[in-house]
Nucleic acid binder design. Structure first.
Lengths: 88, 88
DNA sequence: TAAAAATACTCCATAGGTATTTTAT
DNA sequence: ATAAAATACCTATGGAGTATTTTTA
């Protein structure tokens, strides 16, 4: 699992679409598809159900979203903390 | 920044040595050196002072350690949560 | 001066991008 | 029928390993 996978996941979750997410992420739909699939395989769980128009998170997808946001938030916190000149 | 960088950082922090960390990480010293340096550049801060024998965390290194552990811990939590069959 | 980190270099795996096919309603 | 996801494919980037040089207490 990579931080980028979490970023992709969160973007897809909020867009309910691989295609729209790919635009936000300045990449291409096939990459989003690949990374989400790989993340699902890594976790051993389906995170989205694929629908006629876009995708919809599964229950596990909903749960995972909270952790993903939390992790990405913590990383930003760490960055901000390091940036502060008085932080050393 | 990648999760692997955080893992490398934490291992170095706990080993006080790039070389010993490389063994724990089943890789090679040059990779550890490279990833730590890149992480430092990414953050714009030195995380370790290089000593005659091994390394020693800077004040920012000490602070960053807490976040790194926290992030890696949260990722493990997420994995465990997803693994639970009743989590969906 | 010696143990350990940094650097230079090579090779291969894989990430990203293009084009096409498959799926689901 | 059609919009969107999956797949196949190619190329280029960069991650892992090897060998060597540089650093520092």
């Amino acid at each position: 699992m990579e931080l980028k996978d979490l970023k992709y996941f969160v973007t897809v979750y909020e867009a309910n679409s691989f295609m729209r997410a790919s635009i936000s992420l300045a990449t291409v739909q096939s990459n989003v598809s690949f990374r989400i699939r790989r993340l699902e395989e890594d976790l051993g769980a389906t995170l989205f159900v694929r629908l006629r128009r876009g995708v919809k998170p599964t229950t596990k997808g909903d749960l995972f979203y909270r952790y993903a946001k939390d992790v990405l938030g913590k990383v930003e916190e760490a960055r901000d903390m390091i940036k502060k000149p008085n932080a050393a």
